[in-house]
């Protein structure tokens, strides 16, 4: 005979710990072995309640003069009788039960993120992408090592400097891969390598853009802005990517996690930056990036404007001196 429904005994978190098929009514529930549903709970009577259908076809749970009674999960009150629908929960003693009919509606099937990655993640996860990203990064690092050296360069030095970065990157990706193996049972090493390479490439690009911006427009403290907010954004993207490959978290949770961590890092560095700025120092802190371009292209202020701007320095210094004077005994 096909089952009409199921009685489910739930644990404290609401998960099903035991499921008993119901193929006919009435049925009795209690601690005694003569019941159709036996509940191993000292606060439940040997013959605690009965479930039956009334003339109208409703399913009713009725207390059989038990010591501790029946409690409706929705109203939390002791009831003598309870109308059961598919999904109704009630408590006897310390045990929560749920009745579901065979045609109880189900939640839609969840996508397994670890198995079926998002469309963005799939090309990143390919080992070819990792290889390409790695090669591009190594080439760029070598180029940077060459361009930033002002002495005669040796081949060993051009290779040696990027080598440290590359091995650190590999270690970083390896640690994420290990975490992935533990959490989602897959290493996803290629994906982690690609993500880390992309982040590093973005940071380099950001640095170059910031330097040129600061060179053209020295009024805008672009290096400082990029150093604080640009790197914070790259860090958030990096963590978002790694979490995607290393955990079954949904997109929104990953965004939150990555955003929160990056915000903490940016906040900490902003505080230490502020502390360093407000601490007394005899160092002249200025950025003066110069770049090899035809001077005709360069926007420039006139000599008059330059010295008119210096008045601002004077005002600021007057204020600082006034403050220092008033703080002295």
């Amino acid at each position: 005979m096909a089952a009409l429904g199921y009685l489910e005994i739930l644990d404290g978190k609401g998960a099903v710990s035991e499921r008993i098929a119901v193929d006919s009514f009435p049925l009795t529930i209690g601690r005694a072995y003569g019941n159709q549903v036996i509940v191993d709970d000292p606060f439940v009577c040997p013959l605690h309640l009965k479930i039956f259908q009334d003339e109208q076809g409703r399913l009713l749970a009725s207390d059989l003069d038990s010591v501790n009674g029946i409690y409706s999960a929705s109203s939390k009150d002791r009831v003598a009788q309870l109308v059961l629908q598919s999904g109704s929960q009630f408590r006897i003693g310390h045990t929560t039960l749920r009745y579901v009919s065979v045609d109880h509606p189900l939640a839609p099937t969840q996508v397994d993120r670890a198995v079926k990655a998002s469309p963005l993640a799939s090309p990143l996860a390919s080992p070819y992408a990792a290889a390409v990203a790695g090669v591009v990064l190594v080439l760029l690092l070598c180029l940077d090592a060459y361009l930033s050296s002002v002495e005669r360069v040796s081949f060993a030095r051009i290779i040696g400097e990027p080598w440290i970065t590359v091995s650190m990157l590999a270690t970083w990706a390896g640690m994420w891969a290990l975490a992935s193996r533990i959490i989602v049972s897959r290493f996803n090493f290629a994906a982690h390598v690609t993500i880390a390479c992309l982040a590093l490439l973005t940071i380099s690009a950001l640095g170059v853009v910031a330097e040129w911006t600061e060179f053209f427009l020295p009024r805008v403290p672009m290096l400082w802005i990029a150093g604080l907010f640009g790197y914070g954004a790259v860090l958030a993207a990096l963590l978002y990517g790694h979490l995607g490959a290393a955990s079954p978290l949904r997109r929104r949770s990953r965004l939150w996690a990555a955003g929160a961590i990056s915000l903490v890092v940016v906040g900490t560095s902003a505080i230490s930056d502020y502390a360093a700025r407000s601490k007394f120092s005899t160092v002249m802190a200025f950025t003066g990036v110069v770049k090899p371009i035809d001077a005709a292209w360069l926007p420039a202020t006139s000599v008059d404007e330059f010295f008119a701007g210096a008045e601002k320095i004077k005002k600021e210094l007057d204020k600082l001196a006034q403050k220092a004077k008033s703080s002295q005994p």
């Binding site: 053209f216 020295p218 009024r219 007394f280 120092s281 005899t282 160092v283 002249m284 802190a285 200025f286 950025t287 003066g288 110069v290 001077a295 360069l298 926007p299 420039a300 202020t301 006139s302 000599v303 404007e305 330059f306 701007g309 210096a310 601002k312 320095i313 600021e316 210094l317 600082l320 001196a321 220092a324």
Partner: peptide, 22 residues
Amino acid sequence: TPFRCQTRNVATAHGKLKGVLC
């Protein structure tokens, strides 16, 4: 007091230069 600085690209009669005044 601590230093305060200003950096600008300046066009002088002889050409352009990067100038800093601290």
